[in-house]
Design a protein around this nucleic acid. Structure first.
Lengths: 217, 217
DNA sequence: TACTGTGAACTATTTCACAGCC
DNA sequence: GGCTGTGAAATAGTTCACAGTA
């Protein structure tokens, strides 16, 4: 055994999401079996995943939902508000900026940027679109940790480089490339077309076996 | 060996995406090494992945880019136009409907639905928002294969059930649940918050190792 | 010579199965 | 009795390394 497997990390937010829903429903204690039923994951997998981080359950009973929520939030680093900058204010960037789901989960877009003079100065909710040239200063000043890339593919690597140069350590990219980043920077890509294309493989087969995972993201 | 591993299927669209870009750049032949450099995947992995489907390369030379694009498109079932219905026309659904990237890749939203009378009848590009009650008829009539779910979490499972009942075989879900579907239906989930939460785990650690995959999607 | 295609070796991940505890 | 936590076993996935060929 070495570190904690990346697949495990990617599953924790799913556990958290479900546990939060169960908590809202008023459930106090949950077994790995029940949680697994909701998530379509084996109970053994849930227990093994959690065991990488500690012992959170009570034998013979299960896990206290609220306690496990708290532990997972701590493990995932969700105790703080995370500030993000958004680059690219075309249709996609606009939609991302207007998406309420981030704030709800402690992720805040604190500034947004575009290099199109026609867009700079426009208001997006409480923010004004800034020119790309002000990106570095804003990121450095506020110590923003995460950048969202919503620019066209041809500009994507350049924007990623800029963000990395300003000290951003996480990048959520909607651009259809695998960006090149130094090893201390973490990237998550989101591309619905890629998801659809993997799906059509299965839809084209005579018979389809099991359901696919989220690849989340 | 049994079937083709799911991870392999999920990587093929990434290969395709990169090969299409290389083709546009005028590259005629590519080696697994070069392709791997673009994608940050080992050459051995690319060769192995492709070998599940046939022999597409020439020893000593590499792969003809255009031929490999054609093969991958065939394997992924991209020879046809795929019709999709979109359910949920809130902000997110609206953004999805307006997204140009689908049409560009042979995925067409042919109808969109909401259960809010205030939205029904409004135009979204060339489409009119229809009432949910007309979903089944539309899907059955046109034999639509893919449904996109962009409704709030509380309605998501119900909408998924409806889509499945009408004969949809693939679901792209933006809702924060793992929907329950019969085994012949394929699901891909997209949730940027889940992606961010996995990322903050790494950002919270003292040192961060390698870059994460896309889990795409 | 420069590459692919591929068994075999290796590594990672999942599942099993059961001791231990509530 | 029912459930967790966890080594050990089983599976799945990746990488190596080299024979074969254009």
């Amino acid at each position: 055994m070495n570190g904690i497997p990346e697949v495990v990390i990617q599953r924790l937010p799913l556990y958290l999401r479900t546990l939060e829903a169960l908590d809202e429903d008023g459930l106090v204690v949950v077994s790995s079996q029940e949680l697994g039923d909701s998530l379509q994951v084996t109970p053994a997998q849930i227990r093994k995943d959690l065991s990488y981080f500690g012992r959170f359950g009570k034998q013979g009973r299960g896990y206290r939902v609220r306690d496990l929520v708290r532990e997972l939030r701590r493990i995932l680093g969700l105790g703080q508000e995370w500030e993000m900058v958004l680059v690219g204010m075309g249709r996609l960037g606009w939609a991302v900026a207007s998406y309420g789901g981030f704030a709800q989960h402690g992720f805040q877009v604190v500034a947004c940027f575009d290099n199109d003079p026609a867009l700079v100065g426009k208001a997006v909710g409480p923010l004004l679109i800034q020119d790309d040239s002000t990106l570095a200063a804003t990121v450095r000043e506020r110590g923003v940790g995460i950048g969202i890339v919503a620019v066209p593919v041809d500009a994507a690597q350049q924007v990623v480089d800029q963000l990395v140069a300003c000290g951003v350590r996480g990048i959520l990219s909607y651009a259809p490339i695998v960006p090149r980043v130094p090893p201390h920077v973490w990237v998550q890509n989101i591309d619905p077309v890629v998801a659809l294309q993997a799906m059509t493989y299965h839809l084209s087969q005579r018979k389809a076996p099991r359901a696919a995972g989220r690849r989340a993201v």
